[in-house]
Amino acid sequence: MTIDTIKMRRLSESLAEGEVRGRSLWADARKRFMKNKAAVAGVIMLVLVTAYAFLGDYVAAYTYDFKDFAIMGHAAETGAPSWSNGHYFGVDNDGRDMFAVTAQGTRISLMVGIVGTVIAVIVGTIYGAVSGYAGGRTDGIMMRIVDILLSIPFMFVIILLLVMFGRSISMLFAGIGLLSWLNMARIVRGQTLSLKNKEYIEAARATGVPAWKIILRHVVPNLLGIVAVYATLLVPDMILTESFISFLGLGVQAPMTSLGALISDGAKTMQYGTIWALLVPLFFFVVTMFAFYFIGDGLRDALDPKDR
């Protein structure tokens, strides 16, 4: 877990203080966020990387599943990045055009990161909110389940899942999502507990609004801040997890690839003179990670009014 718990805690304390006063908190936050240079740089980097990932195919002179047989096998001598032959980022040992293949790999990595996070957010928020709002016995049991699941070595379960159902993107999403909602649920539950006794919620309860409506209307919106921050910081975690799975050879199916798979291939062959096959995907990987960290940190600072 790479997420900084201390700042999260402080953020949740200040966010729990009052009901979100509609627009103003978010408006203030945006102002503060825009002042944060690192965060803005993160947004710009992320926009550029995303643009490359989704539009790179239109610029690339080759498709990602194309093998250049003329260069394959001589990549060290003739595969270096070049404008003249259209291989802007060079060709790797498999004869793949690094520009096209990295764009495609970045796309997969971003998708894995974001879909995994969305799963974590949805499951974790609902679970945590229900548990925290219900309280008492239900809360105890639900949290005990989370504790039990947290002590299962999840990397093992992901490997088992991929081995059992065969590799596929959906299985990867499911596996990674499975791994990540637990901490989300814990944070959300804590937040819900402190929200629960606020006057506006008690008022709603007193007027007979059903529990699910209170959760959806009053609890969840007030959780948004902390969930948003946590989610942003979760994305790089997901991408890292996926890269490790790819390294084990259990990642997405060829001819598709991911940044993790490309880096793993590149690292294995770096001693043969095709260093660009490592550096290109590694560059996009590092930039993506930095971007998410910066945005996450910026978002957290921006949403925390006390942090002045």
């Binding site: 599943d65 093998k67 047989f69 394959m72 498999d94």
Partner: peptide, 10 residues
């Protein structure tokens, strides 16, 4: 195997 398969696919 992957290299051969993708070459033959092409």
């Amino acid at each position: 195997h992957q290299k051969i398969a993708s070459a033959i696919a092409q």
